[in-house]
């Protein structure tokens, strides 16, 4: 998945005198206020931060007098989706007209039916809809599937992405990574697996999927940390 990056930032945090008693808390609070918001300076959304080098000396700056500036270096995990990037997310709702996806657990994305390539056909079985590829029967997208899609645009305010499934290399992550089992967990038993594919699948799970899973976990951890700090 693209759009995630780690960047080193040199920051100056202006601390209000009323917070001077506990400067490190004030700094963390200030940095926490950046989280999960689009920031133009970083050109992305700050997902997590680590302050690694605190400057021992703060300065009182003439222009912003009673505030004092604390210089610090911070490591930021940024999420900056740009048009034509490939993102991955989990399908939370699927209808004929649109597929709704959540990326990294917080950003929402929608793919409307015109942006779904003709290869996919909508099918509804017992009230549960899914998109099935006409070419590869096992390539299906339904609620719960991780899909890879192309970014068309981003609403920075609410972090809402408009996506597309037009390019060939988009669709169910499981299928694209050669893992049929993952994408069709339930109906898979009935089907005959081609020889040797199982091993490949296992590898697929091991290598391809772990990345995104790890990402997810990492973010959850960071989220927790953030919560802890806020309290």
């Amino acid at each position: 998945m693209e759009g995630l990056s780690v960047s080193d930032a040199n920051l100056v945090v202006y601390v209000h005198p009323s917070r001077s008693k506990n400067v490190s808390q004030a700094i963390l609070r200030e940095l926490s206020s950046l989280l999960f918001k689009f920031n133009e300076t970083f050109d992305g959304v700050v997902l997590a931060y680590a302050v690694n080098a605190l400057d021992k000396h703060a300065r009182i700056l003439s222009g912003v007098h009673p505030y004092f500036g604390v210089r610090l270096k911070a490591n930021l995990l940024l999420f900056s989706p740009k048009p034509n990037m490939l993102l991955e997310g989990k399908v939370v709702k699927l209808m004929r007209e649109s597929i709704h996806v959540i990326v990294l657990g917080f950003s929402s994305a929608v793919i409307v039916d015109e942006d779904i390539r003709d290869e996919f056909r909508y099918k509804s079985k017992r009230g549960e809809g899914k998109y099935v590829s006409r070419v590869h029967k096992r390539h299906t997208i339904k609620v719960g599937t991780m899909i890879r899609f192309l970014v068309k645009s981003l609403d920075e305010e609410i972090l809402h992405i408009s996506g597309s499934l037009i390019p060939d290399h988009t669709g169910s992550v499981g299928w694209l990574d050669g893992d049929v089992k993952n994408s069709t967990t339930e109906s898979n038993k009935k089907r005959k697996q081609p020889d040797g594919e199982i091993e490949v699948q296992e590898l697929g799970i091991a290598s391809g999927d772990t990345h995104s899973v790890n990402n997810d976990r990492e973010i959850k951890k960071k989220k927790k940390r953030r919560n802890a700090e806020e309290h």
Binding site: V92, I102, S108, I158, H160
Partner: peptide, 10 residues
Amino acid sequence: VDLIPMAASR
């Protein structure tokens, strides 16, 4: 909120 997690803050 299920579909757009960020809506909760709004």
